[in-house]
C-alpha cells in the first residue's frame, strides 16, 4: 500500500479519528473515569447506532448529488408501522419489523421514481413526501406512545455481543456492507459514477436514472434499519420519533467528508463523525450544559467543514490550472 496516497485520500477520516480519540480521552480524564463505567459506556454506544445509520441513509443520496429531507419522516412512519402492527394487530415481531423495513424501502423507491420521472431535484420531492409521511405518522400513533408490544423486543435491543450492544453491531455490519457495496460492486460504482460526472457515466453505458433510483431506494432501506434499531432500543414509539433526524443525518456525512456535489461516499468518515457528534452530546451531559449547545456546536462545525472543503477544492483546482498554463 502506498502510504502517502493513503494519507492523502483519507485525511478527513484520519483527523476525525484523532479528534474522536482525543475528545474521548479528555472526557474520560475530566470525568474522573465515570465515562468508563459499564453503564455510561453502554449508554454512549447504544445511542450511537441510529446516528450512524441515518447518516448513511443521507450519504447514499448525497452520493448522487441530491438530498433526502424525508429521512426523519420515513423513519418515524416505519417505526410507527412496526409498533402498531405488533401492539394492535399482534403480528409476530419479525413480520412487523420486515413490513416496516419494506415500507421504508418502498417510500425510498417512490422518491427515486418521482425524481427520475419529474426530473426535479430530490430536495423538493422529498419535502413533499416528508409532509405526507408526517401525516401518516400522526394518523398511526395519534398522541399516544405505543409500547404494548412483546417484551422480547426490548430484550433484543439490550443484548450485548462481546460487550458491544447488539444494535451497534447491526449498525457496524450495515456500514461494512455499504462500504463494500460502494467500493466493490459494479452497481455501487455505477451510482458513484453518476454522481461524479453524469455525462461521462452515460457515455460509458451507465443508466443515470437507474443510479438515482437505486440511491433513493437504498436510502429508504437504511432508514428502515434505523427504524428497527429505534424500536428495539426505545421504550415506546410516538409521533416525535424521527423529528430530530434530519439535521443529524446531514451532519455525520458532511463532517465525515462527503461532498455535497456528489460522486463520493465516506462510510468510515460518517461513522466516526457520528461518534464525534455523540461525544459533544456526552460532554454536554457531563458539564450539565443546555441541550441547545449541541446543535449550536454541530451547526457551526458543519458550516466550517463545508467551507473548508470548498476552499480546498478550489485551491487544488487552481493548482491544476496552473499546470495547464505551464505547458
Amino acid at each position: 500500500m502506498n502510504f502517502k496516497l493513503f494519507f492523502k485520500h483519507r485525511a478527513t477520516e484520519l483527523s476525525l479519528t484523532i479528534i474522536f480519540v482525543v475528545g474521548f480521552a479528555l472526557l474520560v480524564a475530566t470525568s474522573g473515569g465515570v465515562l468508563l463505567t459499564r453503564q455510561s459506556l453502554q449508554g454512549f454506544l447504544t445511542y450511537l447506532a441510529v446516528p450512524i445509520v441515518i447518516g448513511m441513509a443521507q450519504m447514499v443520496v448525497l452520493a448522487i448529488g441530491q438530498m433526502n429531507l424525508a429521512v426523519g419522516a420515513m423513519g418515524g412512519v416505519s417505526a410507527a408501522i412496526m409498533a402498531v402492527l405488533m401492539a394492535d394487530h399482534h403480528l409476530p415481531i419479525w413480520l412487523a419489523l420486515l413490513i416496516g423495513f419494506l415500507s421504508a424501502t418502498a417510500v425510498g423507491a417512490i422518491n427515486g421514481a418521482l425524481v427520475v420521472i419529474t426530473q426535479l431535484n430530490g430536495f423538493i420531492i422529498t419535502l413533499g413526501t416528508m409532509t405526507i409521511l408526517l401525516g401518516f405518522q400522526y394518523r398511526l400513533v395519534r398522541t399516544f406512545t405505543v409500547d404494548s408490544y412483546p417484551k422480547s423486543l426490548p430484550d433484543f435491543g439490550n443484548k450485548n455481543i462481546l460487550g458491544f450492544p447488539l444494535i451497534l453491531v447491526i449498525a457496524f455490519v450495515t456500514s461494512v456492507l455499504l462500504s463494500l457495496f460502494f467500493s466493490r460492486t459494479v452497481t455501487g460504482r455505477q451510482v458513484l459514477a453518476t454522481g461524479g460526472n453524469h455525462i461521462a457515466a452515460r457515455l460509458s453505458g451507465i443508466s443515470n436514472g437507474r443510479s438515482v433510483f437505486i440511491a433513493h431506494t437504498l436510502s429508504g432501506s437504511l432508514v428502515g434499519i434505523a427504524a428497527i434499531i429505534t424500536i428495539s432500543s426505545l421504550p415506546g414509539i410516538n409521533r416525535s420519533i424521527g423529528g430530530d433526524w434530519m439535521l443529524a443525518s446531514f451532519a455525520a456525512p458532511i463532517i465525515g467528508g462527503v461532498l455535497m456535489a456528489g460522486g463520493t461516499v465516506a462510510v468510515f468518515g460518517t461513522v466516526v463523525a457520528a461518534g464525534v457528534v455523540r461525544l459533544v452530546d456526552i460532554a454536554r451531559a457531563q458539564y450539565s450544559l443546555d441541550p441547545s449547545i449541541v446543535s449550536l456546536t454541530v451547526g457551526i462545525v458543519v458550516l466550517s467543514t463545508v467551507a473548508l472543503s470548498e476552499w480546498r477544492r478550489r485551491s487544488s483546482q487552481r493548482a491544476l490550472e496552473g499546470k495547464k498554463d505551464a505547458k
Binding site: 458513484l192 459514477a193 455525462i199
Partner: peptide, 22 residues
C-alpha cells in the same frame, strides 16, 4: 469524459469493469 473521484484504473475500465458475481 472521466469521473474525477475515481482512480485511474477504474476510469480506464469504466465501460466494462471486470467482475466476479457482481
Amino acid at each position: 469524459n472521466l469521473i474525477p473521484e475515481f482512480s485511474i484504473e477504474e476510469n480506464i475500465t469504466l465501460h466494462n469493469p471486470p467482475t466476479r458475481l457482481g
